[in-house]
Design a protein around this nucleic acid. Structure first.
Length: 381
DNA sequence: GCAGCAATAT
DNA sequence: AATATTGCTG
């Protein structure tokens, strides 16, 4: 029916193209843009061309990729510092939800910025933290961007528009059928905010976005591990500090003992007191020795970590914010790093011990790991 | 101008 | 019938 009147070589990043036949019979190795010979020449979507199209679309985030419809800048408050650590957690926040939960803690002054992302399919927007630790450069797959990434001469916006429309419809239908047959729950990737967990996060194995989701999950895991290390570091410093404190105490006691001993000869009545102090000194010494050596501190498992992150998030923040020393952890007197200062940070912590994941929000990995966590502070005599 | 949907044309 | 194109809306 169709016969080609002309064909244009593709330019773009495929140097391996073989000049195609000039008639309409295109083999899947062709890299030619074929038009039909009709009063109205039409573009022929050859297999090859389509493949390129698909490549471009997936590269741009899939057929239902997100649209970034705006951005906002918020003050670098405690909550924001927290969010810095929690980029993945931030995914899936819907606008309303986010506002409700965090608006009070945020201000439009400093340099934390968020994208307002709209997902094509859902037509709902949500915030995504995008300062510094941008997760992925998900560009939206629109006809224009596709055209750019395909880099095929002669391909117009209209061609792509139409083809994309069809492609999306096809994908949608495909998804629906697979969804009906099997309700595959997705990897812990998005929040459990109900409506935000729709088709786009419930993808099936062959979906091109699946790879993205896997990387995303991996990234989350790495993030968690990173924080585990941070936490352990704090723990270690705390331990050292505690040991030092113990030694100091002991030396004081010993001195006191000595002093008393000198006088003890004179005042026999003090004998009893000396005895007591000695005992005390021994006790302290024992306590010091019995204090859990670092190696014996119960190492938190990932699951514990996750739970801990959830419940004790606030306590990790100062460490990250200013890399402040143990002193500040212990005494809360060191210099504040965030504009609001430690005092108000402490207040914030008191107010919301679980600022991010409370209120039904949850860490992505949390589902199967909810345990009581007591490892943050080793038991001290 | 552009994206996306629906209708239309081939 | 399948799918490319055009029309129209926001």
């Amino acid at each position: 029916m169709y016969s080609a009147i002309h064909s244009l070589p593709l330019d773009g990043g495929h140097p391996d193209f073989q000049g195609g036949p000039l008639d309409g019979t295109n083999l899947p190795g062709d890299a030619c843009l074929v038009l039909t010979t009709d009063p109205k020449p039409r573009l022929r979507w050859t297999a090859d061309l389509h493949d390129r199209f698909v490549d471009a679309v997936t590269q741009l985030g899939g057929p239902d990729s997100e649209m970034i419809v705006g951005s906002q800048v918020y003050e670098k408050l405690y909550i924001c510092s927290l969010l810095m650590l929690q980029v993945p957690v931030f995914h899936g926040y819907e606008m309303g939800t986010f506002h409700q939960k965090h608006k009070r803690g945020l201000n439009k002054k400093h340099n934390i910025s968020f994208e307002i992302v709209m997902q094509r399919e859902k037509k709902k927007s949500f915030y995504r933290f995008c300062d510094g630790l941008v997760t992925s450069k998900v560009q939206e797959a629109t006809p224009k961007t596709i055209m750019r990434t395909m880099g095929v001469k002669g391909l117009t916006l209209y061609h792509l528009k139409s083809h994309l429309q069809k492609y999306r419809l096809g994908k949608q239908a495909c998804k629906e059928t697979t969804e009906n047959s099997k309700d595959v729950s997705c990897v812990a990737e998005s929040q459990d905010t109900g409506s935000s967990t729709t088709s786009s996060t419930r993808m099936v194995a062959q979906d091109p976005n699946d790879g993205y989701q896997v990387t995303e999950a991996l990234r989350v895991q790495m993030e968690v591990q990173r924080r585990l290390h941070e936490q352990l570091e704090v723990q270690r410093r705390l331990q050292l500090r505690i040991e030092a404190q113990g030694k100091y105490l002991q030396s004081i006691l010993e001195k006191a003992c000595k002093a008393l001993n000198d006088q003890a000869i004179v005042a026999a009545g003090l004998e009893a007191a000396r005895e007591e102090l000695s005992e005390l000194a021994i006790k302290v010494s024992n306590d010091c020795q019995g204090m859990v050596p670092l190696e014996n501190i119960k190492m938190p498992s990932i699951s514990e970590l996750a739970a801990a992150l959830e419940s004790k998030n606030a306590s990790t923040i100062p460490v990250r914010i200013g890399d402040c020393s143990v002193e500040s952890c212990l005494t809360s007197t060191s210099s504040p790093v965030s504009p609001m200062g430690l005092g108000s940070q402490a207040a914030a912590m008191k107010k919301r011990p679980r600022p991010l994941f409370g209120n039904g929000e949850s860490l992505p990995l949390e589902g199967n790991m909810r345990q009581e966590v007591e490892w943050v502070m080793p038991h001290i005599g």
